[in-house]
Design a protein around this nucleic acid. Structure first.
Lengths: 243, 243
DNA sequence: ATTACTATTTCCCGAGTAA
DNA sequence: TTTACTCGGGAAATAGTAA
């Protein structure tokens, strides 16, 4: 299952069992069963870990005790900190695509008071009447768009007037070309497929950024790590259960 | 330096470079330089990681891109979470030893108003006049006592009266036999060496716990992880710099 | 029971090289 | 330039076994 070298797997095992603060009573057959390896390898492993100064061993009568050294703890802590850097930093999601002219329906919706009022409340601005449509260029960008859709944290409710009903819209704050704030919207009902991103902002983005059809733009969103990694729950534990 | 199998090292490397959310442009010579291994190994590594479903590769023209799969991210996350369990849980420090009768000076100090008043404030009780002396049994216990001393978070100041000066005392909350609350004290000046732990409490611990000289007791303290691991700063980074 | 030595096998790495 | 094959040598794991 895991290809961590046995050294680290054993070190983690010992740490989990408390060998950081107290000597742990342990035998090579127990270790070998835990890791599905041979008793001989477990023995050699402890010898190596001791030789490398990662653990200390002490034999009392016929039982032996193992405790991690400072160096051993540092080893694991070091690994932990590099993984923490990866998993606890904000996650930047990037989408790239080209501007194109849509059906012009954006300006219609962005003018409806039923939406405008909520947007002013929830986005903090009155949207320029019109959406900037972006055709996403890569599979990555499309996947990331779907991911943002799932994690869009702003909810604009649907409503109805005398003529028809209007669907709800999810939205999330993004930056265009890493600097210009905008909001990516995910209408419950849309004319476009998943390869199109729709952006709104307080101002006319085409004008402000000098964009025209075909212009390449980069859309980025920054998510808190927890939001991102909830989807990746591992299904197998690191350690095998003893057989 | 590190004995993590190259699989994980490469996986971590890719994750650090953003391959969790976006395809990463990478070549086998770059990887081989990064890890001080051969280009052939780097190539094989990517093939293996791909075969195991941990990464996806895509060749566009003459450059190739790598992105981690859900499974690949789960792998690292799993490792991260098991290390997090180790390093972010409260750390229980255990000391074991035998009760013995000291010089009886404890009851003298524990009666001095200069200490008693501060203790009432800082510990929340008036100490029973007398300390419970414990002779620690193992090297581990002695090391852990020194560790607790460093991390004792209660500070009782020294003072002087007309006759002499009295030293400051550090203290930390502990449990005796995992249930009875007490406070371990570390007087700036003490008659005992580092193999003796001195405990105080609101009540007479000997009486309450039915202890007499030679009784075996277990003293435990629970520290927040951060406090504990500050002492273990790793001095080398996980990744080697390119040569 | 253990631990750990020696012998054998397996697996991994890097050189050479093709595409 | 890349990637990735084969192959030979060496490291590491297991089997057998002693203490």
């Amino acid at each position: 299952m895991w290809n961590l070298s046995l050294r680290e797997r054993v070190l983690i095992y010992l740490a989990e069992r408390g060998a950081i603060t107290n000597s742990l009573k342990i035998t090579t057959p127990i270790i070998s069963k835990q890791f599905g390896t041979s008793q001989q390898s477990a023995s050699r492993l402890l010898i190596i870990l001791e030789k490398e100064g990662l653990i200390e061993r002490r034999v009392v009568g016929r039982t032996s005790y193992v405790k991690m050294t400072q160096k051993g703890v540092s080893r694991l802590l070091e690994l932990y900190l590099s993984l923490k850097m990866i998993f606890e930093r904000p996650v930047k999601i990037v989408l790239e695509g080209r501007v194109f002219s849509g059906y012009g329906e954006g300006s219609y919706y962005m003018s409806l008071p039923g939406y405008v009022q909520q947007m002013q409340e929830k986005l903090g601005f009155i949207p320029y009447p019109g959406t900037l449509n972006v055709l996403l260029l890569s599979k990555d960008s499309i996947e990331n768009k779907l991911f943002l859709q799932k994690n869009a944290d702003i909810e604009i409710s649907g409503f109805k007037d005398e003529r028809r009903t209007y669907g709800s819209v999810k939205a999330i704050n993004v930056l265009i070309n890493d600097s210009e704030p905008a909001v990516m919207v995910f209408p419950e009902r849309t004319l476009y497929d998943s390869s199109v991103a729709e952006l709104i902002a307080a101002e006319n983005l085409r004008k402000k950024l000098g964009l025209s059809d075909g212009s390449l733009i980069r859309i980025s969103a920054t998510l808190p790590p927890k939001m991102f990694y909830e989807g990746f729950k591992p299904n197998v534990s690191l350690m095998q259960s003893p057989s």
